[in-house]
Design a protein around this nucleic acid. Structure first.
Lengths: 232, 232
DNA sequence: AAGTGGTCTAGACCACCGC
DNA sequence: CGGTGGTCTAGACCACTTG
């Protein structure tokens, strides 16, 4: 194991063990370097990871302290439906329901701009049961190639991932009660709970696509992980 | 701006602009160091951030490439309810409903161990309306101080944050339909959609606490951010 | 076998900010 | 003002893995 990582692990255990309680000043970099028998940049690299984890606060001249509120960030991942289901050993299938050029509703226009857009509605199945309803808008100004794609054999999600890069993405997670349309497509009764993910992506401040992914509540959950010590 | 960060920004723009498409090999560190007029460790630090963002893949001997699937991680934060509501300018209030020593259900026992546990049920209000139902189990073996706390004036979440550190946390996010009890406490009809967060924490493999936080679907959502924060 | 990334050192300069 | 963290250099050794 790399030395900076050993140091990181050791400092981490001093914090989580309560040996260094919240608010406790941490020895200077120079002192730690002496203690661990290495140079200051190596200690600095170890500490940087702890700062990113939100466990340590550092200020010039004032020194480093254990953060008072270790309000750590959570990390999650939203994989492609197909890969997610395959990873579980389930059988995946896909059905395009609708595809049309149309004018998006107000909130989507605010994101994609006034240009013409493509709407695609599609279903993803796990073991023959509806698992996700994908309701997507694609800006034809930003992604003109989409006009030539029927999306009958490949889902918009998957196609876009290979077709176009993005520089920024935002996700909103929420619970909702299924509207009549959503319920019908997912095979639920109207008003049943669904888990909704709305994803918006940009390429340099230009809206690319907006998608609403709805899942039956009893078949979907998201598990987060701790941000491991991401080395910086 | 630090040089490693300038380099990172430049490389990032080459990727997001499509100049370096997915799968494209990236020049060697030595070559980039030459191009940017710096040393190899500096280039290495810039690239490390891109690897953490999932945009670049590196293998010894094989070199670096733009990741084929920029399946980036998402970062979110679950703040204290009180602070979350205060940040919105709402008025916060708190009510402890129940507190008892009891034997946890099977799944919680698997996490906390067989030792005695404390159960606390509490409500968090925003502007007088129920916002979160907190249903918590605390291991008295791991947190004996909890036995002396009534939780009438401070929520378990808040108390625990200051009382005891943790080394690992796991969260499960899901949608659900409110059971009779949950619905009654939250002022909803039975079967209404709720957003549920289940958080489990450990200190060195020893279970500390498990909490289920239920929110009315129409008043709760989570917004994620890009993890670009820690480097770019 | 050799090229690539991964890491560390020893030393240095600078910006910031609390004293 | 001076101490602290933030960064960079020049050089080096090593581990991994692929051709």
């Amino acid at each position: 194991m790399a030395k900076y990582k050993q140091i990181q692990t050791e400092l981490l255990s001093r914090i989580t063990s309560g040996d260094w309680p919240p608010g406790q000043p941490i020895p200077h970099e120079a002192r730690l370097a002496e203690e661990f028998g290495c140079t200051r940049p190596t200690v600095g690299r170890a500490l940087r990871g702890l700062v990113d984890m939100g466990l340590v606060e550092r200020r010039r001249r004032a020194g480093s302290r254990v953060a008072r509120r270790a309000n750590r960030d959570l990390v999650m991942n939203i994989p492609l439906v197909r890969e997610e289901i395959a990873a579980r050993g389930g059988s995946y299938s896909y059905l395009r329901l609708e595809r049309e050029r149309a004018t998006p509703p107000q909130d989507v226009r605010a994101h994609l701009g006034g240009a013409p857009a493509l709407r695609v509605l599609a279903l993803h199945f796990e073991n023959g049961q509806p698992y996700q309803l994908e309701d997507r808008w694609i800006s034809l100004a930003a992604v003109p190639q989409a006009d030539g794609e029927s999306f009958e054999n490949i889902s918009p999600s998957e196609w876009l991932l290979d077709a176009i890069p993005f520089s920024r993405a935002e996700h909103v997670l929420r619970a909702a009660e299924a509207s009549g349309d959503v319920a019908r497509h997912l095979g639920l009764r109207a008003g049943a709970a669904v888990f909704v993910i709305e994803r918006s992506t940009w390429l340099d401040e230009r809206g690319i696509t907006r998608v609403r992914m709805s899942h039956p509540a009893d078949r979907f959950s998201i598990v987060t992980r701790d941000p491991g010590v991401w080395q910086v």
